[in-house]
Write a protein that binds this DNA or RNA. Structure first.
Lengths: 411, 411
DNA sequence: AATTAGTTTGTTGCCCCAACATACTAATTA
DNA sequence: TAATTAGTATGTTGGGGCAACAAACTAATT
């Protein structure tokens, strides 16, 4: 039980440094006096803390606050030159990388298709190549690199930086932190994709200042990032968040989920189920512009096509999204009862159709969740669309930075 | 955002005091040297902390540790004379009170039936009378009273000590902390019954040292206490834990839940559903000793009767419990997927039949939860049976004590 | 039985370094 | 000039860390 449950003076300093930095991060610009007011810390203490953050180049002073009576305040914000962060998202069939600043703004990005069939070794080599490209691009900007974050589907041991098990990739025990650390001389963080996306929403997105929210990631299946009591909840072994395998009431329930059970929520509300709904409708010869779009763009039936059809008012597309939204709503209603969250944020590939899903989701939730609980929950779409997990990869680095400012070099 | 996110030296002291006291609470007897080893704190610091805890009469020295080489250690444990705690459980049709020591041992208890029809005012007066009786009994023992805890069904504002809403009692906004404080001069804590029971399991029961577990309270419905990341999770407004209203796959699903939906887990696995299962079987003229027991004891069909029948091998009783266990198992499987808990603890009236429920629960969970996740979860029955929430009421006081030892008077 | 060495426990005194209180200077408005 | 607000400088308080030490025992040797 040695992992530092104790407190000492260094801990006090780190706590207060972190608190002040966090406040600057999401209230900027802000003055020392305001910080003292918000935190309750003594003015001199705040000055000392801010001085240290400036020394570490994490924040800087900008102009002063003219207007009211008295001496004008010197405003402080996160230093845009604090450094850059490299975020990498390892998907099942693609690898994405980005350079962001400490506020999560993307300043460089690159994406490549990847082929799982080539094997783990080649795919990791490809990832390493892209990372090096990002490093080179980053160095050209002459900023220090604050860290590298990797987000990936599957279970992760975040302390060791190991991908323990990724069912979709069929990978076991890949020590990413070690692999990357040997190649690049920066701190490496590894996190599950839905968890990373949840942190991104908390730091930069729709869930700023929010202590209790659920990030629902709908794609191949439905996974979740559970942000509870102001921090991520990972469960005993990091498996927490498999929210897609609770049954919902949707007859007929023939579909057998890959988990072996019937009636799983995710079989009614994943990416593929929407495509199937459309196919069924088209087969029944409903009028629709979808076949026409597919022909024009010479593509198979994808979410993007359906979304485009919906955008020009296609009733079959809209109705299919509505049905999926109802299924999503049933699952979300159950989660709202269990968690009483402040927000539920919808992300993943399906969220590109958020506009069409949300009304059905909200309506279904309203009729299925307990009214007193539901009244408290705000359901919205991710602020980052398909980039949730990529920005999430950077966010896990920023999150560590905010928690441990004194790890950053001075001067 | 002023609720003390800052740290100072007083916070350091409180943190370390609390840590040491917690260790003594569940590792006793233990020596100063051991405490230093476990915590990583300096020996001198531990001595100082222990001295303060002794001054506050929370712990005391007992004999020394003979045996090994070197100077024998002075052993320390929680002082049985630290003081007493008054726990009160306000049920729908009963009021229970107990005096416990700081280790959760009941030293005095009393239970009275209560009639909701008499109205809120009378029921509160009755509760106050019982509390005073407990105080009198406590004073006779000449120990100081460390606090009073109240556990009650419904949503609670724990900061204000107000019962916000209790659907079963039809009560709204009852300021219990204020009501009690006017009558008794001790600190008052109010908590939801399932949450209180979860804390009891964490401090005294089956979930000691466990950071992530679920307390499943099966009675009239199914509620839950969610203990996550080492502390209770209450959700945005304290409504978290309504786990009974997720659907499960159990045909036919005619039963309409009081929440208005169909297929809710709790309609298949609550107290009443077991009684109905037995009634159905008896109506179908299966052979059973149950009618005989009912006649002998001159009682209606209750869980206790069914339990007795099961104890003497009655197949109808056993089969009914098994069916209920399967329904419980389906719901628990979903929770295990979502939470990846270390333990699931079954409590509430239904848990008296734990022996008969558990095998069916475990089997169903094994076939419904994702194998990697389920392998990590231990499912067991509450250590306190029907007393969970009563001991829980005392536990919330102890929990505060362990978190804030310096609030206890010196000398 | 007495002596000595070795081991572990717990205490004492000093140091470092947090936040804090107080008194100050600085820069603005009315 | 007076009032107001922002930020700084100085000295105090009190926490934990550290290292030396005293205390209490066991075990081996004389």
């Amino acid at each position: 039980m040695n992992p530092k449950n104790t407190a000492d003076q260094a801990f006090v300093r780190e706590t207060n440094l972190s608190l002040v930095l966090r406040l600057i991060h999401n209230q900027s610009p802000v003055s020392r006096a305001q910080l003292a007011g918000i935190t309750g810390l003594n003015k001199s203490t705040v000055s000392s803390l801010v001085d240290e953050l400036i020394e570490r180049r994490l924040v800087h002073e900008i102009g002063s606050n003219t207007g009211g009576a008295g001496r004008p305040a010197t405003l402080i914000e996160i230093n845009p030159q604090a450094g850059i962060i490299i975020g990498v998202e390892l998907g099942v069939d693609f690898i994405s990388a980005a350079i962001t600043d400490a506020m999560g703004q993307i300043v460089w990005r690159k994406m490549e298709d990847a082929r799982q069939e080539d094997g783990q070794e080649k795919m990791i080599a490809q990832t390493l190549r892209i990372v090096k490209e990002a490093m080179t691009a980053g160095k050209r900007k002459n900023h220090r690199i604050l860290g590298l974050g990797l987000s990936t589907p599957g279970t992760v041991d975040i302390n060791e930086g190991v991908l323990v098990f990724a069912p979709n990739l069929h990978w076991h025990n890949v020590p990413f932190a070690k692999i990357f650390s040997e190649q690049v001389k920066v701190k490496v963080f590894v996190e599950n994709d839905a968890n990373a996306a949840a942190i991104a929403e908390h730091l930069f997105g729709a869930a700023r200042q929010c202590q209790d929210f659920l990030f629902v990631f709908a794609g191949v299946g439905i996974g979740g990032g559970l942000f509870l009591n102001g921090k991520l909840y990972r469960g005993r072994n990091g498996y927490a968040g498999e929210i897609g395998h609770s049954p919902i009431v949707a007859e007929p329930r023939q579909t057998i989920c890959h988990c072996g059970n019937r009636g799983c929520w995710e079989t009614y509300a994943n990416q593929q189920s929407v495509i199937q709904r459309v196919q069924t409708r088209l087969a029944a010869k409903h009028a629709s512009v979808i076949p026409q779009i597919m022909e024009e763009k010479n593509t198979s039936l994808t979410l993007s096509v359906i979304r485009q059809a919906a955008d020009i008012g296609d009733q079959e597309a809209i109705a299919s999204f509505m049905e999926a939204g109802q299924a999503m709503g049933q699952g979300i209603a159950g989660l709202i009862n269990i968690f009483n969250p402040e927000q539920v944020i919808l992300g993943g590939p399906l969220s590109v159709a958020g506009r069409y899903l949300l009304p059905a989701i909200k309506e279904t939730v309203a009729s299925h969740a307990m009214p007193e609980i539901n009244r408290q929950a705000d359901i919205k779409v991710s602020a980052f669309g398909p980039d949730s997990s990529l920005i999430g990869a950077a966010a896990i680095v920023v999150n560590d930075l905010l928690a441990h400012p004194s790890r950053v070099e001075r001067g």
